[in-house]
Design a protein around this nucleic acid. Structure first.
Length: 172
DNA sequence: TGCACGATCTCG
DNA sequence: GAGATCGTGCAT
């Protein structure tokens, strides 16, 4: 399949989060081998006014990449041990990102970070030009579930109740 | 310069 | 149900 192009990432985070479901995440290792995963769960973080989005605290060295245009990668260390993998979306100066929470059978952003060996060296990587990580196109998934986002109790009711978490419905 | 806290997981 | 473990942001 073909790599996703810049136009895909320039859409808003909520749209991209839904469309990323079912797409193929490709990780190329140091030794030249590749691993491929189907994206099964995502969450959207949209703009400075979204209190759950890291950019709500303003532009800092850490969140800088969120202000760039879509297709960049935002990695973030949480609880001192887990690297979260995020895809920056939208136009420049409009901070948005999609958190990858699940790939294949690996559900949980901490596990994803470990599986993909995500670390600071991937911060700011570009999904279109990178030789180490990119996303390939696949058929859109229409049959998915929505739910409130996880672990953002501090964001306040208005934001924490938004159904911006998306995951593929498990087939019986 | 210091400190409290978090988009989590694993183990007991 | 608590601990592991550390970069970041904000208060001193």
């Amino acid at each position: 399949m073909k790599k996703l192009e810049i136009d895909f990432y320039k859409q808003d985070a909520v749209t991209v989060a839904q469309k990323l479901l079912g797409k193929t995440l490709v990780r190329k290792w140091e030794d030249g081998t590749e691993s491929r995963y189907q994206i099964t769960e995502t969450e959207a973080y949209l703009g400075e006014e979204d209190l759950a989005c890291h950019a709500s605290k303003g532009r800092t060295p850490r969140t800088e990449i969120l202000y760039h245009e879509g297709s960049h990668i935002y990695v973030y260390l949480i609880y001192g041990m887990y690297w979260m993998l995020n895809v920056v979306t939208g136009e420049e100066n409009y901070p948005q990102a999609v958190l990858i929470r699940g790939i294949d059978k690996i559900i949980g952003s901490g596990k994803v970070g470990r599986e993909l060996k995500i670390d600071k060296s991937l911060y700011g990587e570009n999904l279109i030009t990178s030789e180490r990580i990119w996303i390939e196109n696949a058929e859109d998934i229409d049959d998915f579930e929505k739910a409130p986002r996880v672990g953002i109790d501090y964001a306040g009711d208005e934001w924490k109740n938004k159904l911006w978490r998306f995951f593929i419905k498990v087939k019986k």
